[in-house]
């Protein structure tokens, strides 16, 4: 059976002013139907580029230079534009970081919702409005009729994101790509939106590809996580495996940097030393070697391949080789 979404050896490059930025390098991921996959990484790790590549929304300066993206067995990178547009919104949808920017300020919420629906289905305006109102209620906007008449500026950030989610889910897609959907929102609203998405995935069997830089978000809604560093997958596994048994030093560093309720207040938050790897250079060795506390000579020479450290748990690190070794690092850092 096909995976719902399977990214195979994907590479994306940006050309700017004669320089080439290697945003995504040889990334492979799988998302099974009914699962939520989180993609975690810092700014510039290529996580957003990956999401945009799936929807073919890359800017003109960027190009997919290798690999395939299979959606239910169909290659999205090779599909004609028209076919892809029909698929987008119908079977796969996307929500974005800043909902205020994503709603056209000069159209009412209702007309934007019905526009999306009518782009895919031959239905009357009245039918579209009824369905839109129903969807708005499903995402927790009880006063749907009023919201439909309003313009985006009149809504709060949380309401706008709910409208975006409603718009994305109107046609009943199977996959939702959420590009940092809670980053621009207040913490309390973030929580509400995450709960809503979790609830929706539980009810409808929707799968979500979650792009985020927060492990908190991942822990809340995802089944699997891929940690991206320098445009490469550093570690990939289930949420439980990663939190309990992180094999890659980068993941361990990220997890250590998350403040917890129990941590000593006097102690400064831990951080990973150094700066993110430049996207312009293709390093020979491990992209994380320069910041890695456990880097050896070999790490600078030879790029570690993604390999299985325990069943269904992969890491790209020389130090995390055998399952036994992974267990030991797990004890060290668990």
């Amino acid at each position: 059976m096909n995976s719902l979404l399977s990214v195979e050896n994907l590479s994306v490059e940006f050309k700017s002013g004669g320089r080439t930025a290697y945003a995504v390098n040889d990334v492979s991921l799988r998302l099974e139907a009914g699962e939520n996959l989180g993609i975690v990484g810092e700014s510039g790790s290529g996580k957003s580029t990956l999401a945009h590549a799936v929807m073919r929304l890359l800017p003109d300066s960027a190009a997919v230079t290798g690999g395939r993206i299979l959606f239910d067995g169909r290659d999205l990178t090779a599909m004609p534009e028209r076919e892809l547009r029909a698929l987008c919104g119908q079977e796969l949808s996307m929500i974005f970081q800043d909902p205020m920017q994503c709603l056209d300020p000069s159209f009412s919420v209702g007309s934007q919702l019905t526009e999306t629906l009518r782009a895919h289905e031959k239905i009357t305006r009245a039918e579209a409005r009824t369905r839109a109102a129903k969807m708005l209620r499903a995402v927790g906007l009880e006063d749907a009729e009023k919201v439909m008449r309003q313009y985006p500026f009149a809504l709060s950030g949380g309401m706008q994101q709910r409208v975006m989610i409603a718009m994305a889910l109107l046609t009943g897609p199977r996959l939702l790509i959420a590009d940092e959907p809670t980053t621009a929102l207040d913490v309390t609203v973030q929580d509400q939106i995450l709960h809503l998405l979790k609830e929706l995935t539980r009810q409808t069997g929707l799968s979500v590809l979650f792009i985020t830089h927060s492990f908190g978000v991942v822990a809340e809604v995802c089944d699997r996580v891929a940690v991206l560093y320098g445009g490469r997958v550093a570690e990939y596994g289930t949420v439980r495996q990663l939190f309990a048994n992180a094999a890659h030093p980068y993941t361990q560093g990220l997890l250590a940097a998350v403040p917890s309720m129990e941590s000593d207040r006097e102690q400064p938050l831990s951080a990973i030393d150094g700066t993110p790897v430049s996207v312009f250079a293709q390093a020979e060795g491990c992209p994380f070697a320069a910041r890695c506390p456990r880097a050896e000579e070999r790490c600078r020479r030879e790029r570690p391949a993604l390999h299985e450290v325990e069943p269904d748990h992969f890491a790209a690190c020389h130090a995390a080789k055998a399952p036994a070794l992974a267990e030991r690092t797990g004890e060290d850092h668990g």
Binding site: C88, S93, F96, Q101, E115
Partner: peptide, 26 residues
């Protein structure tokens, strides 16, 4: 360049509708 155009494209709204609707109105 606005994100709502990108959002509309992501949700499968056709280029003609984007030009005639979102662009002209704005």
């Amino acid at each position: 360049d606005c994100e709502y155009i990108e959002a509309a494209r992501a949700l499968g709204v056709s280029p003609v509708r984007i030009a005639a609707g979102h662009v002209l109105r704005n």
